[in-house]
Design a protein around this nucleic acid. Structure first.
Lengths: 143, 143
DNA sequence: CGTTGTTAGTTACAAAACCAACCATTATTT
DNA sequence: AAATAATGGTTGGTTTTGTAACTAACAACG
């Protein structure tokens, strides 16, 4: 097997990582600079803003984030007054998380920017390319 | 602007990150488990194995890795006897890095696995899809 | 009941990434 | 040639992440 024709540009994991990094950078700077949020915090915020109140465990499962990361993100978001916790009567192990008004407006702002940003990212591609790209990524990500 | 139709699955940076994570996982376990390497170390090893001896700075530029990360990866690879350094006479700020025999055989092994692994990853896609996917990623990554 | 097992969530400690300041060496300016 | 800047590379301290062990609450089984 000849390796001299095997370049990093041919290696999917590398390409995906580089593209992901590049694509995330600018957007990341937005929510970090404006709200001091980390990526996990933004994802948690997004889930609550987009799908309504839910428990931390549900976020873990849906977003495939480890529970310790979610736990810390929730604490951080709580401290920044973006969400509040409510114990569930029937099962006191659960805590329902919901966004505060503050959280909602941050969500609205950031997700609008996200949409904008997404459009900008895929603008160079044809509609067909966009569709194929998304489908491939969804399959690769096991979504 | 309505956000209720904007899902994470529609957001490129998210998709890219999830796909990248998923795609990297298995391969990462290979070189980590077998050689105790970190990702940056594998990338440095790859550059030296694929393109021959070069300086740390060159690796930084070509692989877009910050110099502190490269510096530490080089130290680690040196300790594991995968590479050696050679001072450059004309400019003693530079150090040429080259793989040891040990390093070369690790490179051969891992890059063969990488090729294999890449093929497995894209197998579910048609040739045309593969080509579009790669081109889009290369463009997104600014490569 | 009471023991054992699960589940949701937190905490503590180690590994890794990030950022800034730092040498040492070479270039440039005056 | 002295002073200043720029370059290649390293080091130290802080943040983030990862991993494992830990509570607390509930479930299931004898």
């Amino acid at each position: 097997m000849d390796k001299s024709d095997f370049d990093l540009r041919d290696f999917m994991p590398y390409l995906l990582n580089m593209a992901a990094e590049e694509a995330s950078l600018e957007f990341q700077q937005y929510y970090k600079g404006r709200y001091g949020m980390l990526r996990t915090e933004w994802r948690v915020l997004f889930h609550l803003g987009r799908y309504g109140e839910m428990t931390a465990k549900t976020i873990c499962d849906r977003a495939r984030i480890h529970k310790t990361k979610v736990s810390r993100a929730v604490s951080a978001l709580e401290q920044k007054r973006f969400l509040s916790r409510k114990e569930v009567e029937e099962d006191r192990r659960h805590e329902l998380l919901r966004l505060t008004n503050n959280g909602v407006s941050a969500y609205n702002d950031i997700s609008a920017k996200a949409k904008e940003f997404d459009e900008k990212l895929v603008r160079p591609f044809s509609v067909e390319e966009q569709s194929i790209l998304r489908q491939c990524l969804i399959k690769l990500a096991n979504l």
